[in-house]
Amino acid sequence: MSQSGRVRSARRRVTTAAVLLLGTVFVLGGCSAQQRDEWSRLALPEPATEETSLIGNLWIGSWIAAFAVGVLVWGLIIWAVIAYRRRDDELPKQTRFNIPIEFLYTVAPLFVLVPLFWFTADHQEQITDTSAEPDLVVNVIGQQWSWTFNYMDEDVHDIGTINDRPTLYLPIGQTVRFDLESPDVIHSFWIPAFYMKMDVIPGHPNAFQVTPDREGSYVGRCAELCGAYHQSMLFDVEVVSEQEYQDHIADLREAGQEGIIEPPIRGAYDDEVLDEENTGGGHE
């Protein structure tokens, strides 16, 4: 290629890069404040507990590490393509090696993996720490195919069914510990806005605690494939004021839902579904 041809090619590349950069700026500039906020969280939902910063920072840090590795690898690939591009028909030596590059590929991952491992272990220890005394305890039982919530401090319960999802009420600003149990198979208790999920394992009680700090309505679900009607294991979460929480507890008492429910529980797999299965009927 002549000198003028190389100059024109370089100009085209610069022009293309400039157009892409300006397009990106315009696209991001046209986003609403809410969309920009979502971009800053890298697709995580709006946080709803005091502990979400631990998981959110780890999530963003993992992406930064991934991008750093990607930039390094792609940079080396592009450099090798340009520096060692084919110039004639001579076959290059197949036994040649580059000690500095091989050393870089060996050492560079350590600068990514070691900090990432350390932050993961440190944050995991804080996230799963239940040594602090909670303000209330909710015993969560995951059964095929719904949830039971025992409000241990209030001695009331709420049972969901495969057709009627239960609602978990939590008072804002109070630390709640979830004690997780299962009488049948492995489930996974997950509230996306809490940035936290934990397996519910038969014979192996689990626990974690969080402090909700934003009132609102949220959705919870089972994040472990647990059988034919796994998709029905949904529940609602209401983070409310202390007064609203006490009103809900009073409603449960008036409805006769006093006492603590112990597994195994068959109520969630209701008679309607059992009848359909016994008669060969389907369930949508």
Rank of each mutant, 00 (worst) to 15 (best):
W74H: 11
W74C: 14
G75K: 04
G75I: 07
G75Y: 03
L76W: 11
L76V: 04
L76A: 05
L76D: 02
L76N: 15
L76K: 09
I77F: 11
I77D: 02
I77Q: 09
I78N: 12
I78P: 00
I78T: 13
W79L: 14
W79T: 13
W79P: 00
A80G: 11
V81K: 13
V81Y: 05
I82N: 06
I82S: 06
A83F: 07
A83H: 08
A83N: 11
Y84W: 06
Y84V: 03
Y84E: 06
R85L: 03
R86A: 10
R86W: 01
R86K: 14
R86E: 05
R87S: 11
R87G: 06
R87P: 01
D88A: 09
D88V: 05
D88L: 06
D88Q: 03
D88Y: 06
D88F: 05
D89G: 15
D89T: 10
D89I: 06
E90A: 14
E90M: 07
L91M: 07
L91V: 15
L91R: 12
P92Q: 09
P92N: 13
P92T: 14
P92Y: 06
P92L: 07
K93N: 08
K93T: 09
Q94F: 09
Q94P: 00
T95M: 02
T95P: 00
R96I: 09
R96W: 09
R96Q: 11
F97Y: 02
F97C: 01
F97S: 04
F97I: 08
N98A: 09
N98C: 10
N98V: 12
I99D: 07
I99S: 12
I99F: 15
P100N: 07
P100D: 05
P100S: 10
I101H: 00
E102H: 08
E102F: 12
F103M: 15
L104Q: 10
L104C: 13
Y105G: 13
Y105N: 12
Y105C: 15
Y105P: 00
Y105F: 15
Y105I: 15
T106E: 00
V107R: 02
A108R: 04
A108C: 10
P109Q: 02
P109W: 03
F111S: 08
F111A: 11
F111V: 12
L113A: 15
L113T: 15
L113Y: 03
V114Q: 01
L116Q: 03
F117W: 12
F117Q: 04
F117R: 05
W118N: 03
W118D: 02
W118G: 03
F119G: 03
T120Y: 10
T120A: 14
T120L: 08
A121S: 06
D122C: 04
D122P: 01
D122I: 11
H123W: 09
H123G: 02
Q124R: 13
E125A: 15
Q126N: 08
Q126M: 10
Q126P: 01
Q126T: 14
Q126I: 13
Q126R: 15
I127W: 11
I127C: 10
I127R: 11
I127Q: 07
T128W: 04
T128A: 08
D129G: 12
D129K: 12
T130Q: 05
T130C: 13
S131N: 04
S131F: 02
S131W: 00
A132R: 13
E133S: 13
E133G: 04
E133A: 14
P134C: 14
D135I: 12
L136A: 08
L136C: 04
L136F: 02
V137Y: 01
V138A: 08
V138I: 15
N139Q: 05
N139W: 00
